[in-house]
Each structure stands twice: as C-alpha cells, then as structure tokens.
C-alpha cells in the first residue's frame, strides 16, 4: 500500500458518501429529479459483484476485505434506493445512454482478452472493462441536460481523482516493486481519460464559484 492508492481508495469512499448525501438531499425537495444516472449506478453494482468473486478465497488484508464488502454493499444499497425508495426522483427520460452496448462490449472483450480463460478470471476482466466505461451514462446525462448541480460535480470530481491517483499508484508500483498489470492499466487509462473534459470545466468554472454548464 502506498499513499497514492490509499488516498485514491479514500476518494472512492468519499464519492459514495457524496452520492448518498445528494440522494438524501434530493428526496427532501419534492418532485425534483436527482440527475444521478441509475444506469451508471447499476453498472457499478455489477462491477463490484463480478470483481469480488474472490472475496472469501483470496484474503489480502482486513483493509482489502472490508473495502470490498463496503463497495458491494453500498453499490447495492444505492441501486435499491434509486429503484424503490427514491424512485420518483429518478427520471428515465434523461438516462438514455444505451448501457447494453457497453455491457456487451465489455463481456465480449473479456472473453477475448484476459489473463486466463476461467469463469472467475473472465468475470474479473469483465468487471475491469465495465468499470472503465460505467461512468458514461452519467456523463451522457450531463451533456444532455447541459448543466449539473455542484454536489453532482463534486461526486464526479471525487471519482475522477480516485482514478487519476490510481494511475500515479501504478507508475509508483512499477518502479518500486515491478508491479505489472496491463489489463488494469489500459482500462484504467481509458477510464481516467473519460474525465478530462469534466475536469476542465470543473476547474475553470465550479471551483471559481460558477455553475457547471457546458459551453
């Protein structure tokens, strides 16, 4: 464990807490749309469920296991909240990204490009590829509405920072322990790249107190 990875994981936790806060806040304003993509959240739940199939077989550390359990539980909880409890705040008319294509694409690629052709490995690889593109429905929703609330932008910023720090962590690990993981690296680079546009607007507008609006 290094500082980059630790802070990255903590930012991931922060993003989840921001999301829960945001949903709680949206519910208190009757009839309002949350503008959180249900599809993105459902994809994240799928990512965690397919990645941590080694939860009981592969023990790394108490930290590792606790985080895995938290990510699985919180992602399922968020999906549950959006689907049942806060259903009214969720507007499917804005959430129109064709998620089935990225699920199909990730599944096909996982069957072709993987480290070993076993059920667990293919599921793990699928989760890596799917995570890389899971934010797309949310970003697509953002471009559709053309603007975002501050709390939503903080959520995306926390997620983007978590991914960016993982890139730094991999460079650090390569030099210090000759750690290599091509599948994770390439998928991670793609995933971080998706946040570039968002980061640009976040830094030039939101941090200066302006509203998040697309040009």
């Amino acid at each position: 464990m290094n500082l980059f990875r630790l802070v990255a994981d903590l930012m991931h936790l922060v993003s989840i807490f921001i999301l829960l806060l945001k949903m709680q806040k949206t519910r208190s304003v009757a009839g309002r749309c949350s503008r959180i993509s249900f599809k993105t959240q459902a994809l994240y739940a799928t990512v965690f469920l397919t990645r941590y199939t080694d939860l009981f077989a592969n023990f790394q550390s108490l930290y590792n296991t606790t985080m895995k359990v938290f990510f699985i539980a919180s992602s399922l909880y968020i999906v549950f909240l959006m689907k049942f409890k806060f259903k009214a705040t969720n507007d499917p008319r804005l959430d129109t990204f064709k998620a089935q294509y990225v699920v199909g694409g990730a599944a096909a690629l996982a069957l072709i490009v993987n480290y070993a052709f076993t059920v667990q490995e293919v599921l793990w690889t699928f989760s890596i590829y799917l995570e890389a593109v899971a934010i797309l429905p949310q970003l697509f929703m953002l471009t559709k509405t053309g603007e975002a609330e501050v709390i939503t932008t903080h959520y995306l910023f926390a997620l983007g920072t978590y991914r960016g720090l993982y890139l730094v962590n991999w460079i650090y690990r390569y030099w210090t322990e000759y750690y290599v993981d091509w599948i994770v690296w390439i998928a991670g680079a793609v995933q971080t790249g998706l946040y570039c546009d968002f980061f640009y607007i976040y830094f030039t507008k939101v941090l200066k107190g302006a509203k998040f609006e697309l040009p």
Binding site: H12, Q60, N64, M67, F71, Y178, Y179, V180, D181, V184
Partner: peptide, 10 residues
C-alpha cells in the same frame, strides 16, 4: 521478468 498478477488492488 514476468510476474503473476497480484490482484491486491480494489
């Protein structure tokens, strides 16, 4: 050198 993937990340 080829190293086995550790899978110690989240």
């Amino acid at each position: 050198p080829r190293q086995r993937i550790k899978k110690d990340e989240l």
